[in-house]
């Protein structure tokens, strides 16, 4: 129980996937223009990361390890995650059109995202148990969402701010991301596993 709590704390704040580990920078910069879309993306990431970790953990423990195929984890994980997300998308479209409207556009975007693969790979590398892996995935994705939503909020304000001409657009966004990352550095070393 203690370990699960510390996993949650560590991967939301201390080892934030975007701001400390630098995974998933692409969607972090790409869909953080509006808080609304950032929320949609966040929900999709939480969903996909948890599901992907759950399945890949089972695959790793019950298929790859017994056959001593650990070296194939990246290939198989990519295959499984891509197939799974596609499957969920098709099913969701039929069963819950409302949910599909909300998440649908974002699902294909994160299928091949490095953050998703990283969670799956780290979960087995850290030798987490099944339950721990799930909480690890949830925490990591919440950390991702946190960074995304904070960034979207800042960028919405930046729209109205007076930015020196040379720094307009992507430049100021990258600087903002850097400062945000520095801010999260304050959590460094607060807790370790």
């Amino acid at each position: 129980m203690e370990k699960i709590l510390s996993i949650i704390f560590i991967y939301i704040l201390v080892e934030n996937f975007v701001l400390q580990r630098f995974f998933g920078i692409c969607p972090f910069l790409g869909v953080s223009r509006k808080t609304e879309t950032a929320m949609g993306m966040s929900m999709a990431v939480i969903f996909v990361m948890t599901l992907a970790t759950l399945v890949t953990w089972l695959l790793y423990t019950y298929i790859l390890v017994p056959f001593r195929l650990e070296y194939m984890q990246i290939v198989t994980f990519i295959l499984v995650i891509a197939g799974l997300v596609q499957f969920v998308e098709i099913v969701m479209r039929k069963i819950s059109p409302v949910l599909y409207q909300g998440l649908g556009i974002f699902l294909p975007l994160i299928t091949t995202n490095c953050a998703v693969l990283a969670v799956a790979l780290l979960a087995v590398r850290q030798e987490f148990t099944f339950i721990e892996s799930i909480f690890f995935a949830i925490a990591a994705s919440i950390g991702f969402s946190l960074a995304l939503v904070i960034m979207a909020g800042i960028r919405e304000r930046l729209e109205m701010a007076k930015v020196p001409q040379a720094l307009e657009g992507t430049a100021i966004t990258l600087i903002t991301a850097g400062i945000l990352s520095l801010a999260f550095l304050g959590f460094k070393g607060m807790l370790t596993l």
Binding site: I63, F67, M72, T76, L79, G83, L84, F87, I90, K94
Partner: peptide, 22 residues
């Protein structure tokens, strides 16, 4: 392993696409 996994997901997607067509 990889072959079976690929085949499994291929079939799964083919079947779901047929069953869950909108």
């Amino acid at each position: 392993t990889l072959g079976i996994l690929g085949l499994f997901f291929g079939l799964l997607l083919a079947v779901t696409a047929r069953v869950f067509t909108v």
